[in-house]
């Protein structure tokens, strides 16, 4: 059986929180799919970027469990293409921050193999820490 989606005003809170953190009027997303078609990471993702926007629009906080929010590479390809002028990378960041601010890290940098740590450019490590840890 298909899933049944409950839509009610109770879900507004999540939408409002993410809208505020990201500074984006998420209800403007017209679900055109340009972001998904543009995204370099989409083949690794469990939900597409447009689907991520849809779930936030409908206040479905399950979106926080999606791999997608961690896979967004902040490449801004969708940002320069969205016909509604939305910045999806900011929405993904807001979703990550909801988790990271609860002091739940997404990765453990210390667990990386030593030779990797030596070889990786600093900007990769710092950026990784900024994006994946609180």
């Amino acid at each position: 059986m298909a899933n049944r989606l409950m839509i009610s005003t109770g879900n507004e809170e999540f939408l409002e929180r993410i809208s505020e953190m990201s500074g984006q009027i998420i209800t403007l997303c017209e679900q055109c799919g340009v972001c998904s078609g543009s995204c370099p990471m989409v083949s690794e993702m469990d939900i597409t970027p447009s689907q991520m926007m849809r779930m936030v629009q409908l206040g479905q906080s399950e979106v926080l469990r999606a791999k997608t929010i961690w896979l967004c590479a902040s490449c801004f390809t969708c940002t320069v293409r969205c016909p509604r002028g939305l910045d999806l990378s900011k929405v993904a960041e807001a979703l990550r921050q909801v988790i990271l601010r609860q002091a739940v890290d997404h990765i453990d940098i210390k667990a990386l193999p030593r030779d990797e740590l030596v070889e990786l450019p600093q900007i990769a490590l710092v950026a990784g820490m900024r994006k994946f840890t609180g």
């Binding site: 961690w70 590479a73 990765i107 940098i109 990769a124 990784g128």
Partner: peptide
């Protein structure tokens, strides 16, 4: 892939 190189 940018900083994803750390993780993936």
């Amino acid at each position: 892939g940018s900083y994803q190189t750390v993780n993936d």
